[in-house]
Amino acid sequence: MSNVLKPLTPPYDPAIAEVLAGYPQQDGYILSLFRTFANSIRFLTKAVPNLLDKDSPLPLREREIVILRTTAKLDSEYEWGVHVAIFAQAAGLSDAQIAATRNGSADDAVWNDTESLLIRCVDDLCDRGTITNAQLADFQMLWSLDAQLEIMALCGTYHTVSFVANSTRLANESFGKPFPGR
């Protein structure tokens, strides 16, 4: 048994195969990240909840801004690139907004007031582990309790995802987008 964490390849243990069957796939291809999670059935089933379902209290656009900003701040080109490739267009994000999730600030003209606040809150969570007093009242006013928890859960989950992708040195998926300027 190897202690090198890397994506599993088929054939999978039947229990792993059963869980992986519920993960998103394209023509039978399972992302390297998900196959890396499969090194632990516990992690695969419990550690990273699926927050990408249609029942999210956040609109797709806000969800993706949270994910892109979090993964960009953690220098996770793998995960950032997967989300840009799969979700950015459906979320209505322009090329300038996509680039700003990596290289911009909350004050960039590409964001409306709500999105600027969302970027500030994500930056706070990533940098300080809390939403600062400067943003907290507006955060609580603009987002429902469900949405507030979802924003925090997305930040936390995508910290974990970024840690796994970065620490295992996952190569970008063939369809993944590179960070702007690379």
Rank of each mutant, 00 (worst) to 15 (best):
L33C: 11
L33R: 11
L33M: 11
T36E: 08
F37D: 07
A38L: 06
A38Q: 07
A38M: 11
N39A: 11
N39P: 12
S40A: 14
R42D: 09
R42T: 10
R42L: 02
F43W: 03
T45V: 15
T45R: 11
K46H: 12
K46S: 10
K46Y: 06
K46R: 11
A47C: 11
A47F: 10
V48L: 06
V48P: 00
P49V: 04
N50F: 12
N50G: 02
L51F: 09
L51W: 03
D55I: 07
D55K: 12
D55R: 15
S56P: 13
P57H: 01
L58D: 05
P59A: 03
P59S: 05
L60G: 05
L60C: 06
R61F: 09
E62P: 06
E62L: 14
R63S: 12
R63A: 06
E64Q: 12
I65M: 02
I65V: 12
I65F: 02
V66E: 15
V66K: 09
I67A: 01
L68C: 08
R69I: 07
T70P: 07
A72I: 10
K73A: 08
L74I: 05
L74N: 14
D75G: 14
D75L: 15
D75E: 14
S76Y: 03
S76G: 03
E79K: 07
E79V: 15
E79S: 11
W80P: 11
H83C: 02
V84G: 05
V84K: 07
A85T: 06
A85C: 10
I86T: 10
I86K: 15
F87T: 05
F87M: 10
A88F: 12
A90Q: 14
G92Q: 13
G92K: 11
G92E: 09
L93Y: 00
S94I: 04
S94L: 07
D95M: 06
D95V: 08
D95W: 00
A96Y: 00
A96W: 00
Q97D: 01
Q97A: 08
Q97F: 01
I98D: 05
A99N: 09
A99T: 12
A100S: 15
N103Y: 14
G104I: 04
G104T: 03
S105D: 14
S105L: 11
A106T: 03
A106V: 02
